[in-house]
Design a protein around this nucleic acid. Sequence first.
RNA 1: CGGGGCGUAGUGUAACGGUAGCACGAGUCCUUUGGGAGGAUUUAGUUCGAGUUCAAAUCUCGGCGCCCCGACCA
Length: 423
Amino acid sequence: MKQSELFTKTLREAPKDERSISVQLLIRAGFVDKLAAGVYTFLPLGFRVLEKIQNIISQEIENIGGKRILMPVLVPKTNWQQTGRWKSFKELFKIKGKSDQEYGLGPTHEEVIAPLIQKYVSSYKDLPCYVYQIQTKFRDEIRVKSGILRTREFDMKDLYSFHRDENDLDRYYEKARKAYFNIFKRMGLKNKTYLTLASGGSFSKFSHEFQTITLAGEDIIHICQNCGLAINQEIKKDYPECPECHKKGFKKEKAIEIGNIFKLKTKYTKPFDFEFIDKDGSKKLVIMGCYGIGLTRLMGTIAEVHNDKNGIIWPKKVAPFNTHLIQIGNNNKVKQQAEKLYKDLRKQEVEVLYDDREDKSPGEKFADADLIGIPIRIVISERTFKRDCVELKKRNEKKIKLVKIKYLSQFLSSELKTQNAKP
RNA sequence: CGGGGCGUAGUGUAACGGUAGCACGAGUCCUUUGGGAGGAUUUAGUUCGAGUUCAAAUCUCGGCGCCCCGACCA
């Protein structure tokens, strides 16, 4: 993409009513725009990051058998009444149509998926079954917080699994846990993300949350210094020692929940009488699990964790572009060379944001590049032109190196080859 | 939902109850081009409503909106 065609602009200062560092940077760099409290537009750069996040998540979920669908946002009142959540789900946005028909705007989709899968599952032979979607969710939060970290409208991946017994659920739950860590690893969050025991509600002993350490977080977790398992403060009173390794040393940290996995068992199959016929001919309730990841929150968390005083430092796999090509000066030869490089790189499927703006000083271009935070910066100027080189700098490093243009694609392909590790 | 703070131009920030100003941005022209360039010139604003007053950005009341703390968060 040519930067001269990018309609967004960077801001020198953050709007004064945003205090969270991630959203300050995301707004200044032109990734998102705030429409109202907890309601954001994702601009071209931000949308590209969301797409990267989405691709990584769907690859990993497909790897554990998930089949992608898209459920409606409008969910009729009767579905909610069947599980009692029309009354008990306090954040449910409720709307009324012209004919007095009432709907809840989906904040999560157990009430749709359970009766949906029920239509197709009648025998143990139809199980297990794994279905997911990536969709905009609505929750009427009493108070939104920290930019895109807690909003009223957000994108979520929700996966649901259906099983004939709890053992099978347990096996899949483990697979999901591993898939989640793959996802967070690919997004550069692995080192700061902890599997965390949390309340399981009345129907399961625990659920597991994936908590990323950051001061912007709203949860407090206690990390076992021996085995690394964390316990959410909300249930810590029940566990003076680690339930995993039985040691006692814990470290307290603020963290944000970027995902969770939950053994629902029969909580949502029972209200719909969702049964199957087992091998022995008996009817049994289907056992269910659910697994959520907030994509927009994830994007905010990444920006919150990866930044410096000059801007965001996107991990490679979620950056809006692989490379940021910057043309310094408007010398014709330099310009032609930059244009050619832009085309060549795109032919090689290297994603490139090309700063071709003629009315911006070098200093401003560098400052914008740091703010936007693309991993590899490529500079072309008269200086490099004379030597038939380009200048390379990584966003997370200080050193700058000159590379002959003919070797650039070689260099980039080795730099980017880990990009698509998974099919 | 309880408590606190705040609403001035696209962004940031001034103005005793008395002329709404500055910086950045944006437009035009000239010069400039390796870490947010310089000059000239133009552009654009008091959240809304009511009240007090000769006079309100400023005081009072109400609405709307935003931020923060707490409670809440299948």
